[in-house]
């Protein structure tokens, strides 16, 4: 038990050490590549390789210099707003559409080919088209996320509906449930865990998409911030950005997983 815990802490630490070693090696070979210590200083402040005292980018993530120069917190917040905007839209459209496709064979025949074709399209392919339509950074980013994160929600919702056992539907038939009662009392409870699986996948995709979308649209947001640091030749900040994007994505996934478990009847009452 205790050794298990010790392993869980020690083994990742060993891998971390290896990663830092490899990173240092790369920094040694590639000119201007930031070393781990450069990156640490850039993040948390201190004296950099040139001997200058600098303030880290993480020292004050809440600063607002002007509209175009804000702390990392605001960058992340801006990205999250877009992600949740697009994600919420995908949910509002995707769940009812998924329910429809799951319940009606005709709807499945009608929509399935298009889902299969649009699902594998890279978000970056949509971006220019949407930018042309909306001529607005926020709208473009949100609609790109919408259009790429809606597919897992539709597919999983439909799958959830189809997994409703015939027996439950027979119970509903004997009790003469109305279609609405069938949806809310039988289909949704079964489909909810599937819907959440879809939402979790969608949110993951949305977070992947936002970084790329913001690089192209510019303005504000963590994706643009990373691109901006590249233009500033502040390569250590790119690495900081990558770690932050990873951490935020991880947190989103964990939170989504917890919410999903809360609504999943199969995970209840098994104390």
């Amino acid at each position: 038990m205790n050794t298990e815990l010790l392993k869980k802490i020690l083994l990742p630490l060993i891998v971390l050490l290896i990663i830092i070693q490899v990173w240092s090696g790369i920094a040694h070979v590639v000119e201007d590549f930031p070393t781990p210590s450069d990156t640490y200083t850039a993040a948390f402040g201190g004296v950099n390789a040139d001997g200058d005292e600098i303030e880290g980018v993480l020292a004050d993530p809440f600063y607002i210099e002007n509209e175009d120069d804000k702390g990392l917190f605001w960058q992340i917040l801006e990205s999250l707003k877009r992600v949740f905007g697009g994600f919420a839209l995908a949910l509002i459209v995707g769940v009812p559409l998924g329910l429809l496709i799951g319940m009606s064979k005709n709807a499945q025949y009608a929509f399935d080919p298009f889902i299969q074709i649009f699902k594998p399209v890279s978000p970056l392919a949509w971006l220019p088209l949407l930018l042309f339509i909306f001529q607005d950074i926020n709208m473009t980013a949100i609609s790109t996320i919408f259009i790429t994160s809606i597919w897992p929600i539709i597919i999983n919702t439909a799958l959830g509906v189809r997994s409703v056992s015939e027996d439950y539907m027979n119970v509903a038939k004997v009790l003469c449930f109305t279609p609405m009662e069938k949806v809310f009392q039988i289909i949704l409870p079964v489909a909810v865990p599937y819907i959440f699986t879809g939402m979790r996948l969608s949110l993951g995709i949305a977070w992947l998409v936002i970084v790329a979308a913001e690089m192209l649209t510019g303005g504000i947001g963590i994706g643009f911030w990373i691109w901006d640091e590249y233009n500033n030749l502040a390569y250590q900040n790119i690495i900081i950005g990558i770690i932050i994007v990873g951490l935020v994505g991880f947190i989103l996934d964990v939170v989504m997983g917890k919410i999903a478990d809360f609504f999943d009847y199969t995970k209840k009452g098994r104390a």
Binding site: S165, D167, Y168, N170, V171, V174, Q185, I186, P189, Y265, T266, K268
Partner: peptide, 13 residues
């Protein structure tokens, strides 16, 4: 005409 199904068909939630 109530039915008792072979596999009980209780709603698990």
């Amino acid at each position: 005409r109530a039915v008792v199904f072979q596999n009980h068909s209780l709603l698990p939630w």
